[in-house]
Structures are given as C-alpha cells and as structure tokens.
C-alpha cells in the first residue's frame, strides 16, 4: 500500500509534527466528549467532510508558498460541480470517468485565465482572483438558470465511488487526497519547479535576479490550483449528491484558513502540502469537537475566522522571536 520509505523521505518538519500532535489532541478531546467521534464511522465522516477542503488546500498551498493567493477556487468548485451534474443529466451513459475529465477541464480553464493575468501581466493575485471569483460564480448563476440537480441525475458509478470506503474508515475521496498530497509533497521537495516556488515566495526580486522562470512557475501554479478546484467540484458531488448554483459559496476563506493554520505562511516561502492537509483536518476536527460540545453550527464561520487569526498570530510571534534572537546575536558579536 503506502510505501513507508516514501513517507520517511517526506521527513516532516517540526512544524508539521507539532500540528499533527495538536490534531491528535483535538481528535482525542472530541472523542472524550463524543465517543462516536473515535469510531470507524466518526473517522470516516471526518475524512469525507474534509476531502473537498483538503484537496483545495493541496491546490493553493504552492500558490501561497509563492506569495500569491487564489480566491476563485470556491467558485470554480461550484462551476465544476454544476456543469458536471448538468452533463451527466443530459448524458445518462456518462460514468465517473467523464465526470473527472469534465471537472478537470473546467478547472484548467479558470486556472489558465488566472495564471495569464497574474503571471503574464504581473497583476496582484488578490484582486485578479477576486475578479474571477465573481465571474466564475456569475457563470454558475447564468448557466444554471436556477436548475438544481439531485442524486437521480448523477451517474451511479460516481455515487458508488463516493460511498466506497477502504479498511472501514478510509473513503475513496480521502485516499485520493492522500495520494495527491504525497505526489505534491515529493514534487515540492524534489523538483526544480517545486524548489523554485519556495525561492520565488521567499525573495521575489532575488528570484528574478538569479534567473528563475518566474512566469512559467507562477502560471503553472495557478493552472494546478484550478485543476484541483475542478476535481474538488466532482468530490463535492460525490459527497452531497446534489448541486445548485450556490454550491460551496464563500468557502474559499475556509481553505485559506486551513492552509495558513497548516503552517503555510501568507508571506510566502515556507510551509508544506502535508501541513496544509493537516490544517484542513484540524479545522474540521475542531468544528466537530465544538459541535459535540453543543456549540451551534451557526458559529462555524466565527470559529474558522478565529482559528485563522490565531494561526497568523502564532506565525508572527515566531518571526518576532527569531528577529530578537538575531539582534541579540549581533549585539553579542559587537562587544
């Protein structure tokens, strides 16, 4: 199954390890309040409900590493989910294969547009993807024309795949997330493109100076994020078996929160895909834990926001401590 050697090679940094410990504590704590959380069913629910956000987190992690952001992903999920459902409703012969192909193509198209605007014209990614967030969601409104789709219009093979569970607790979608995470983690660590992403985010002017292919890397990162969002749209269908024009509306911030909580700093240059996935799991677990405590689901967004602010603050505290040490060192050397 999973190649242990490969896992070892990923060598999680201390940040990921501590996050993982926090995750275990959170899962354990939730389990204490609600024992069902620790059962196979509970784990399966957690993993199923995290799949979409986790896949998107894998998609935007490289972008955030490059000191950019992609806010259009949630709209892309919506467009992909609705369009895939629409195609399936009109072509009953379609199976899960066509679903993934269509979803990917839609994500690819959005990614190309974002990539050209951000990398080609060097426009700020925040504004560009804010714009495409609108445009893509608007497209969903226009093409859907208030038509919703339910389970009966979707291919059985797709829904079956969505129900598929390995070892009693690993849903198909999360298995895909794990595979994507491992491949991406290896890519980010062992290829030139991956390393360039860190360099570009760490020091953009220097990246230009040493002649890194900034345009190509940035462009491809947006394309990748787009494709992941397209596939996440299909995951969305597999989980909910229904879709309307507001599907996944406004969830881009939940993904950004997951990524930042997972240790990918918004200032670029550091963080890993593994961290981003753990971040997504952590957010979902904390949500689950608070629900178990009897906190109303309406507080979900508030908790997401608070978690994000705490994550940014923790990051800042670490950076300030670092700077202070440097200064102290400098003073020592001066004496």
């Amino acid at each position: 199954m999973l190649n242990m050697n490969l896992l070892k090679k990923l060598r999680p940094s201390s940040r990921e390890s501590s996050l993982f410990i926090i995750l275990i504590v959170a899962v354990g704590g939730t389990g204490l309040i609600n024992p069902r959380f620790l059962t196979g069913d509970g784990t399966r629910d957690l993993l199923t409900s995290t799949s979409v956000v986790a896949l998107l987190a894998i998609g935007i992690a490289p972008i955030v590493v490059m000191r950019h952001i992609d806010l259009s992903i949630a709209s892309t999920v919506g467009l992909s989910a609705w369009t895939v459902a629409d195609f399936c409703a009109k072509n009953p012969s379609f199976t899960w294969v066509q679903c993934f192909v269509i979803g990917s193509i839609i994500g690819l198209a959005v990614g190309i547009v974002n990539g050209l605007l951000v990398a080609g014209l060097r426009l700020p990614s925040l504004v560009v993807t804010l714009g495409t967030l609108y445009i893509v969601r608007g497209l969903v409104y226009v093409v859907s024309n208030s038509v919703d789709y339910n389970a009966q219009e979707m291919p059985e093979s797709l829904l079956a795949l969505g129900q598929k569970v390995y070892f009693g607790l690993l849903p198909f979608t999360f298995l895909m997330v794990i595979i994507a995470m491992i491949l991406m983690a290896l890519f980010m660590k062992y290829t030139k493109s991956g390393r360039d992403a860190y360099a570009i985010g760490s020091n953009p002017p220097a990246a230009d100076l040493v002649g890194l292919k900034v345009f190509r890397r940035t462009f491809l990162a947006f394309v990748f994020s787009g494709v992941m969002a397209g596939i996440a749209g299909v995951f969305y269908l597999m989980r909910f078996a229904q879709v309307d024009s507001t599907a996944f509306y406004g969830q881009e911030l939940a993904v950004v929160a997951a990524v930042v909580i997972g240790g990918v700093t918004i200032m670029g240059g550091s963080g890993t895909v593994v961290g981003a996935v753990i971040g997504a799991l952590l957010v979902q677990t904390i949500q689950g834990g608070l629900a178990a405590l009897g906190v109303d689901a309406f507080w979900k967004a508030a908790i997401n926001g608070l978690l994000l602010i705490i994550a940014i603050y923790a990051d800042r505290v670490l950076a300030v401590r670092n700077e202070k040490q440097l200064l102290a060192q400098r003073i020592r050397e001066r004496i």
């Binding site: 290896l186 660590k189 062992y190 290829t191 030139k192 390393r195 360039d196 860190y198 360099a199 985010g201 760490s202 020091n203 002017p205 220097a206 990246a207 100076l209 040493v210 002649g211 890194l212 240059g269 550091s270």
Partner: peptide, 27 residues
Amino acid sequence: PSLFLDLSLAENVFIGRQPKKGVAIDW
C-alpha cells in the same frame, strides 16, 4: 547578500542549478 532566507544553505548555493539524480533533485 540577498539570499533566499526560507531555503537551506545547500539550496541557496545551488539555486537554479540543483544537481539531479533521475528526475529528482539529489539533495
């Protein structure tokens, strides 16, 4: 100097010209 502060020293030395073994960088 303008190094990439988030990267390792080895990486800074070889940035843009990382040695490869097969498809992967030979760290």
